[in-house]
Lab assay of single mutants.
Amino acid sequence: HAATELTPEQAAALKPYDRIVITGRFNAIGDAVSAVSRRADEEGAASFYVVDTSEFGNSGNWRVVADVYKA
């Protein structure tokens, strides 16, 4: 099962156990969220919340930071 994305309210009520950072070329924010979901799932997380997204220069590469939560 894939890790689910939390709302800001849900994330605020929970304590993350880790923070992950992924970088890559994403065509849309949805693609980045899917990549975070896969990584969170690999780490055994039940859910995640994207904290920050930023573009690296003009290369089209993105850096996505997310907190991950157990259950």
Rank of each mutant, 00 (worst) to 15 (best):
H1R: 11
H1P: 08
H1Q: 10
H1Y: 08
H1S: 09
H1G: 12
H1E: 06
A2G: 14
A3F: 05
A3S: 08
T4N: 09
T4C: 15
E5L: 12
E5N: 07
E5W: 07
L6K: 01
L6N: 03
L6V: 02
L6G: 02
L6S: 01
T7M: 06
T7W: 04
P8K: 15
E9I: 09
Q10P: 01
Q10N: 04
Q10M: 10
A11H: 04
A11Q: 03
A12C: 12
A12E: 08
A12T: 07
A12V: 08
A12Q: 10
A12G: 08
A13Y: 11
A13R: 14
L14W: 07
L14E: 06
L14F: 08
L14T: 06
K15E: 11
K15H: 10
P16N: 03
P16C: 07
P16W: 05
P16E: 01
P16R: 04
P16Y: 03
Y17E: 01
Y17F: 13
Y17H: 04
D18V: 08
R19Y: 06
R19T: 07
R19I: 10
R19H: 03
R19A: 03
I20H: 00
I20P: 00
I20E: 00
V21I: 12
V21S: 06
V21D: 01
V21T: 09
V21H: 05
I22Y: 00
I22K: 00
I22H: 01
I22C: 06
I22E: 00
T23Q: 09
T23E: 13
T23S: 07
T23K: 07
T23I: 15
T23H: 11
G24V: 07
R25H: 12
R25G: 05
F26T: 01
F26C: 05
F26R: 00
F26Q: 01
F26S: 02
N27L: 12
N27H: 12
N27Q: 11
N27F: 09
A28M: 08
A28R: 10
A28H: 14
A28I: 07
A28C: 13
I29W: 14
I29T: 06
I29N: 04
I29R: 13
I29A: 07
I29K: 10
I29F: 11
G30P: 06
G30W: 12
G30M: 11
D31Y: 02
D31C: 06
D31K: 04
D31N: 05
D31E: 13
A32V: 12
A32N: 01
V33I: 15
V33E: 04
S34A: 15
S34V: 13
S34R: 15
A35H: 06
A35I: 07
V36A: 07
V36W: 00
V36S: 02
S37H: 08
S37R: 15
S37N: 08
S37V: 08
R39Y: 13
R39T: 06
A40N: 02
A40M: 04
E42R: 10
E42N: 06
E43A: 14
E43C: 15
E43T: 11
E43P: 01
G44W: 05
G44T: 03
G44Y: 04
A45C: 11
A45S: 04
A45N: 03
A46W: 12
S47C: 14
S47N: 08
S47W: 15
F48D: 00
F48C: 05
F48N: 00
F48P: 02
F48K: 00
Y49L: 10
Y49G: 01
V50R: 01
V50Y: 01
V50H: 01
V51P: 00
V51E: 01
V51H: 03
V51S: 02
V51Y: 04
D52V: 12
D52K: 07
D52E: 15
D52Q: 12
D52N: 10
T53N: 06
T53L: 15
T53S: 12
T53M: 15
T53V: 15
S54F: 14
S54G: 08
E55G: 06
E55W: 12
E55Q: 13
E55A: 08
F56Q: 11
F56I: 15
G57S: 09
G57R: 06
G57K: 07
G57A: 08
N58M: 10
N58P: 12
S59I: 09
S59W: 06
S59K: 11
S59V: 10
G60F: 04
G60P: 06
N61I: 15
N61D: 13
N61R: 10
W62I: 10
W62T: 05
R63A: 07
R63D: 03
R63P: 02
V64M: 03
V64T: 01
V64P: 00
V65M: 05
V65Y: 05
V65G: 00
V65T: 09
A66C: 07
A66I: 13
A66R: 00
D67H: 07
D67R: 02
D67N: 10
V68R: 00
V68C: 05
V68E: 00
V68H: 00
V68I: 15
V68N: 00
Y69L: 02
Y69I: 03
Y69A: 03
K70F: 12
A71L: 09
A71S: 12
A71Y: 12
A71I: 11
